[in-house]
Amino acid sequence: MVTETKILNSIKNLLMLSPNQRKLCKRLEEGRGRLFRMAYAWSHNKDIADEVVQETMIKAMRSVDSIKNVEALDSWLFRILSNCFYDLCRKRRDEIDIDEITLLDRETPESVHLQNEMLESVKSAIACLPIKHRQVLTLIDIESFSYAQVASILDVPQGTVMSRLNRARQSLKKILNESEKNHNNKAILKVIK
C-alpha cells in the first residue's frame, strides 16, 4: 500500500512535465528496446545492459530540458547511453575489463549449435573487438546512425569514426575467417576419428 501511494503520488509529476519531457517519455517507451540492444552489443551482458539503460533513462529525464533540438533526441540518448556505459565500467573496474568482455550470456555449446551458429560466431567476434571499435561498428550497423551522428554521440572527430569503423571491420573479417578455418579443421578431425 505504501508503494502504491508512492507510485500514485509520483504520477503527479507527469502532469507537470515539460513538453520535451513528455516527448521523451514517449520516445523512451518506444526506444527502450533499442537502447537495451545497443548496451548489450557493447557489454554482452544483460545485467549490465539493463543497468546502463536504467541510468540512461534517469539522466535523460533530468536533463531533457537542456536540449534545443528535440528532433536530435536519438543521438542525444545514445550519447548518454555511451557515457553511462563508461561510468558503469569505471565503477565496476575490478569486475569488468571492458576490452576483455566475453559472452557472459552465452548459452551452452549445444544450444548455440542448435541456434544460428553463424550469428553466434559474429557476436563472439564483436565481443573480441576493443570497445571503441565495437561502439562505432554497432552504432553504424545496428542503429544505422550516420558518421556525423556517431561522432557526436561518442564525442570524437568524424575521421576517428571512419578509421575506427574500418579497423573494426578489418578485425571482424579476420576473426571470422580464422573462426571458420578452425571450424573446418575440427570438422575434418571429426571425420578422421
Binding site: 527502450r32 544483460k46 539493463d50 553463424m118 550469428l119 559474429v122 557476436k123 564483436i126 550497423d141
Partner: peptide, 26 residues
C-alpha cells in the same frame, strides 16, 4: 565482403528482445 559483414552484424542482435520480465524489474 564488407556489405555482407554489415548485414551479419545487423542480424546478430536483431533477435534480442527487451522482454516483459525485464521491464517489470525495471
Amino acid at each position: 565482403e564488407i556489405r555482407m559483414l554489415k548485414e551479419k552484424v545487423q542480424l546478430s542482435y536483431s533477435e534480442l528482445k527487451y522482454d516483459d520480465d525485464e521491464k517489470k524489474s525495471f
